[in-house]
Nucleic acid binder design. Structure first.
Lengths: 210, 210
DNA sequence: CCAGAAACTTGACACTTGTCAAGACGAAAT
DNA sequence: ATTTCGTCTTGACAAGTGTCAAGTTTCTGG
């Protein structure tokens, strides 16, 4: 009886370990896929292309993912985790409005400059979700998280001057997302003025939200 | 001499006529292509699919367009012309803020409900432009036109109460575009609350812009 | 009316795609 | 040591892609 129970516990533990390894591998593969996806976009990216730009063969992807959509969904979910806490440190450490503003702007500029490819992929996938139902759940969830992220920044901004925000989370996110998207497109089109003008715009907008 | 000049004028006129016919045909084809593009999105749409969903054969498209990108660009440009004057009548006829607001909201709701497929295509193509340089010029141009369109509505809104707008065109467009995009996605995901909540949001936002 | 041009159709091409089956490799278990 | 299992590779398949050349129809100017 006791031996049986022990054996079962060992089996369960072994399976859990396998699962964990399996999942870790999935994330490795998703990360590799994100490279190519960020480069080419969803439409032009094939499993073979992903494989060629990585250390894996195209078969592995089918071993770990039921199909292409499964892979992309995993990529999107993984992307979310990285993205959504980007401004939290600034929010946590800023001691004044000015400090928060400058920290936020600096991070925005850095994101735009260095993670442009990841972000255009995000906009690509969000558009795809309008056609492909399989993406919608994840995309809507990420969108909510991003809205909450912006709301955290804005709340802190208001709090630092003892004020209350005058807009809704949805409107605030729409505003920043719209500005960011437009700046990203212009930046990718080699418009040198895109980032500075975007920063100016944000700087001008911030005082009006509360 | 005179006869030669006449002959030349006739030839020029004939060529212009041919050109006009050629262009008209291109637009017919682009319009047919928009049907399928709105249904499937850029990524999943092939020339053959476009042809099958229309009265044309797939060869015609290659007769009138140098390649697929050429066709899509023509579609986008044609789409722009239709889209950009959507609210101008409301702007021209509204005699009060209330009238303008209600007219604007009604048009927004109608657009969201009836032209959802065309608009998701627009967002798709704008994302594609982040990857494909060939789209950028047209997309940026259309974006500017849409910004101007929103600005006209807002300017009239301010003017009707003798006030001045407190935001920049870019920020205002970013806000409306962001809200619209989010509402569209939710609407396409069969979220019944998407449109009413969007309208509420706009109703709340409008008084804050001046 | 008829020759030539324009408009369009058809079918084929070279290539890429997602998918999967058959097998190879290595490690763990018996 | 042999079997078993999870992991991964390879090669093949059918379906679909953009492109184009060759042929057919329709129109039109003389």
């Amino acid at each position: 009886m006791a031996r049986q129970a022990t054996a079962q516990r060992v089996a369960v533990a072994a399976e859990a370990l396998r699962d964990e390894k399996f999942n870790a591998r999935r994330i490795e593969l998703a990360e590799a896929a994100l490279e190519t996806l960020g480069e080419l976009g969803f439409a032009r990216t094939s499993l073979r292309e992903i494989a060629q730009n990585s250390a894996f063969t195209h078969g592995v992807f089918h071993y770990y993912f039921s199909d292409k959509l499964d892979l992309i969904c995993c990529c999107v979910r993984h992307y979310k985790a990285k993205c959504v806490t980007r401004y939290d440190e600034v929010v946590a450490t800023a001691k004044s409005r000015k400090e928060l503003t400058e920290g936020f702007l600096a991070k925005l500029a850095m994101t735009l400059r260095e993670d442009a490819r990841m972000h255009r992929l995000w906009y690509d996938l969000r558009s795809q979700a309008m056609f492909e139902a399989a993406f919608r759940k994840d995309v809507l969830e990420i969108d909510k998280s991003l809205e909450a992220m912006i709301w955290r920044v804005a709340s802190r901004y208001a709090e630092l001057d003892g004020k209350r925000l005058a807009t809704s989370p949805a409107a605030l996110y729409a505003l920043f997302d719209g500005l960011f998207q437009s700046a990203l497109l212009r930046h990718l089109a080699n418009d040198e003025t895109a980032i500075p003008e975007f920063l100016d715009e944000v700087r001008r907008v911030l005082p009006t939200i509360c």
